[in-house]
Structure formats: C-alpha cells, structure tokens
Computed example of a mutant assay.
Amino acid sequence: MVRAGLTVERVVQAAAELADEVGLDNVTLSALARRFGVKDASLYSHVRSLADLRTRLCVLAAREMTDRIGAAVAGRAGRDALLAFADAYRGYALEHPGRYAAGQLQVDPAVAAESVGHRRSIDLTYGMLRAYGLREPDLTDAGRLLRSTFHGYADLETRTGFSHPRRLDDSWHRSLEALHFLLENWPTTASDDTEDEADREGDS
C-alpha cells in the first residue's frame, strides 16, 4: 500500500472510490488511513476533519456530475436536452452511488458559491428549462420538480426500492416523456413584466 506522497487530491479521490465501494456513511478517516497504510494522524495534514472530507467529496461529485451532464446536453435543446440531462444524471448516480450521495449533502453557502459544479448545475438546469420558454418563478418551480423526480428515481433505484417486474428503463423513459409534455404545457404564473435572472443580470 502507498505510504507516501499524499495530497489533498489523492485523499479525496480515494475517499470517493471508497464511498462508491462501501457507502458514504462508512467512509471514515480511519478507514481511509487503512487504505493508504498510514496512521489516522497522517491525514490531518490534508483534511481537517471528517466534515471537511465530506464537503470536499460533495464538491468533487458536483463537478464530476455536471461535467457529464454538460457533455451530454451540448448542442441539444428541448426534449433531446431533457432526455440527455436526465440519463446523464441517473447514470452518474447508479455508477457512483457513494459520490452521488456526497453530492446531495448540504454545504456552507460560501463553499457552494465557490464550487464550479454547484454553479454549473444551476446554469445547466436553467439553460435547459429556458428553451421551454419558462421564466421566473416558473424556472425555479420546474427545476425543483426535475430534481425531485431525478433524485427520487435514482435514490429508489440504488436502494432497490422498486419491486414491480416492469423494466425500470421503461418506466424511466415514460416518466421523461411525461415531464417533456408537462414542460411544453407548463401552467405559467410569471407576469409579462417579470424578468428572469439573466435579464436582471444584464441590466445591472
């Protein structure tokens, strides 16, 4: 086992791999130290605490996930973008369950503001929804609906929460078609003079 050359990046990457293998709740500094063949104290030069490690895992997961989603939706709009976004989201959650769980953690707002992945998640979601002609407050409402749907499905699937014999992929794609229909027929509540976030930034 590697005993030297530890860096913050190596420690966090090893923690991410461990989380996928044994679950986020089972990632401890002691378990991580054993993975490197060092004493627990050796890790404190790189991460301050377990809470610090979990925050770094959250930031890592957000970046990895949005990189995947961004690549999937590039050049797409409307239904094609929605399906690509959703499949990339679900794919990451199923392939990296520990990292995905870390990505759902609440972090300090200051950390989220500096996290490329957290900022890009908002940009990708709102960009996709604007193609459906939505503006605030409908952008936020629709974004919350999509996150609830994607997260709920992925979380139940990783926990084997679906027991009906119907193929999960079939239900997933039918759900996405229903979301597309809903977004195209969204019951808007924004008034004609309501400006979305991008408009307000452009005027500032």
Rank of each mutant, 00 (worst) to 15 (best):
A14T: 12
P165H: 08
L94K: 10
H164G: 08
G161P: 05
G98N: 09
G127Y: 03
L129H: 06
G133A: 05
Y132N: 10
Y126K: 14
Y92M: 04
G37P: 02
R35L: 13
A33T: 04
V73P: 02
Y100V: 00
S49K: 01
A16P: 03
T158N: 15
A88P: 03
W172L: 04
A154D: 04
S121W: 12
F36P: 05
E201L: 15
T125F: 06
R90M: 05
D169N: 09
M128Q: 04
S191I: 01
E184G: 15
S175A: 13
L57P: 03
P137E: 13
T55F: 00
S171H: 10
A51P: 00
A131D: 12
S121Y: 11
V111C: 06
F181L: 14
H151C: 01
R167Y: 03
S45Q: 15
M128T: 05
S148W: 08
R48W: 01
M65C: 08
A190G: 14
F150P: 02
D169T: 13
L134P: 11
D20A: 11
E21I: 02
A86N: 05
D80Q: 09
T55Q: 07
D20E: 09
S175K: 02
V12G: 01
A198N: 05
N26P: 00
S175V: 03
D138P: 07
Y132Q: 12
H46R: 12
M128H: 04
P97Y: 06
V59Q: 07
L145P: 02
D170K: 07
A19T: 01
D203S: 14
A93G: 11
P165K: 07
R99S: 12
L18M: 15
E136A: 13
V47D: 02
A16I: 00
Q13G: 04
R159Y: 01
T140H: 10
G5I: 08
S175W: 01
R200T: 09
V111S: 09
A198K: 09
R147F: 14
A198Q: 13
A93D: 09
N26G: 02
A113M: 08
I69M: 10
V2C: 00
M1T: 13
L105P: 00
R144Y: 11
D123K: 11
